[in-house]
Amino acid sequence: MEKLRQFLKTMTPDEQKHFAAKCGTTINYLRKRISDRSSNLGEKICIEIENQSCGEVRCEDLRPDVNWSVIRNG
C-alpha cells in the first residue's frame, strides 16, 4: 500500500479524485484502506489501480497475499 500512498502524493486532490473514479472507487475509500493495515483492497480494484497507474502501482504491491500469477495467466 505504500506504493499507492506515494503514487497518490504526486497528484493534486482533483487528480486523486479522478484517478479513484477511474478505478471504480473514491479517494476516501482508497485513503481508508491505505491507513487501515488490517483491511485489503478487492482484487478488482487492485487490477484497476495497476491499469490506471500504467503499472506504477502493481497488484503485488497492494495485495502480496494473492497469487497474481495465477490470475494473470488464467
Rank of each mutant, 00 (worst) to 15 (best):
W68Q: 02
L8W: 04
E2D: 11
L4Y: 01
N67M: 06
V57I: 04
E2P: 04
S69T: 08
I34A: 06
D61N: 13
R33V: 15
T10P: 02
K17M: 09
L62R: 02
I71W: 07
Q16L: 08
D65V: 04
S35A: 14
M11G: 03
T10D: 06
A20D: 02
L8Y: 00
G74T: 07
R5S: 09
N73E: 15
N73A: 15
F7G: 01
I47R: 06
R72P: 02
T25R: 03
Y29Q: 11
L8F: 06
N73R: 15
M1S: 11
R33A: 14
T10L: 05
E56A: 08
G74H: 08
S35K: 14
D61L: 04
I27K: 08
V66H: 02
N51L: 15
C46T: 10
M1Y: 05
T25K: 00
R58V: 02
G74N: 10
N28Q: 14
H18F: 12
E43S: 13
Q52G: 09
F7W: 05
F7D: 01
N73G: 13
T26K: 05
T25E: 05
H18L: 15
C59M: 14
N28F: 10
Q6I: 11
S53K: 02
F19P: 02
Q52A: 12
F7Q: 05
D61P: 05
E15G: 10
S39R: 15
R63M: 05
K17V: 08
R63W: 04
E50Q: 15
R5N: 10
E56I: 08
A21F: 09
